[in-house]
Amino acid sequence: MSTHTGAYRPELLATAGSLAELERLIDAGADAFVLGEPRYAMRLPGAFDPQAMADACRLAHARGVRIYAAVNNLIDNKAADALDAYISGVARAGVDAIVFGDPAVLVQAKAQAPQLALHWSAEMTSTNYATADFWGRRGATRVVAARELNMEELLELKRKSALQVEVQVHGMTNIYHSKRSLLSSYADYRSRAGHGAAQLETGSERGLYLIEPERPEERFPIYEDAGGTHIMSADDICLLECLDELLEGGIDSFKIDGLLHSEAYNEAVVRAYRTAIDAYCADPAAYRFDESLLDGIRALQDPGRELSFGFMFKEQVY
């Protein structure tokens, strides 16, 4: 019953913490990567400045893989003033698209690199097809859907929007972002109150997490970087089991977010989704979910983190 022609080749998009991981995930089947550096990108596992991005582009393009530059951070005046030079830099590095959230990036990308595709990614606020098309009329070619949408909303977004639709299918998601250094402030408070040391290492590699007393099973990773404090979901989205619904709906890009996961884990995940997507595309009618693919992921899954459907089958209230 597929409505697609044989030409439907959805993209499998990944992140990479290093050039080595990038190569490993290309081997595992990734079609594209989103890369960036903390100054301009939001919550990525690695740091690729324009120089490193150029290396990544050479390596990726030789294998038919695309590189998207994440310039989707919150942009203050200082960052905005250097934006034209930065965007020219990533364009020269050879990237295939720019991922933006702030309109300043859209404007500068159109001025400095009009040949590049533009992906609109406003995190939890990219929530409907009409707003996607608003950005489409101003140059965007793709919408990165909010992780808080459900299946019905995602499929309607795809049906009604003129843009390509990217959906995160695996990994953790951000649930809170503050400009404040909340962990450092807390350590500072404790020290002033005589409860503990003022020093606390707060980076993403430290493995810090929060537990809310009424939800003792859920561990929410938390870390600080130059952009402030980030709190991440206690579960990892895993949509392998319902991938066929998204494929049937014609979703253009399936993203695996490797943030705070090991290379080995990310490799297994990319491989599993590659296999599922290829199986579907080879014969949509005969496609069946293969439990063993999920088992491969489960074998490497942190036992403290559930695999979940996220908001895919939820109705939220307000």
Binding site: M124, I175, Y176, H177, S178, R180, L182, Q316, Y318
Partner: peptide, 17 residues
């Protein structure tokens, strides 16, 4: 305390958007 609009704690804790 978050950037306004950049917080879905309620969504995760109570399914309230």
């Amino acid at each position: 305390s978050s950037y306004s609009g950049r917080c879905v704690l309620s969504n995760h804790f109570t399914d309230r958007d």
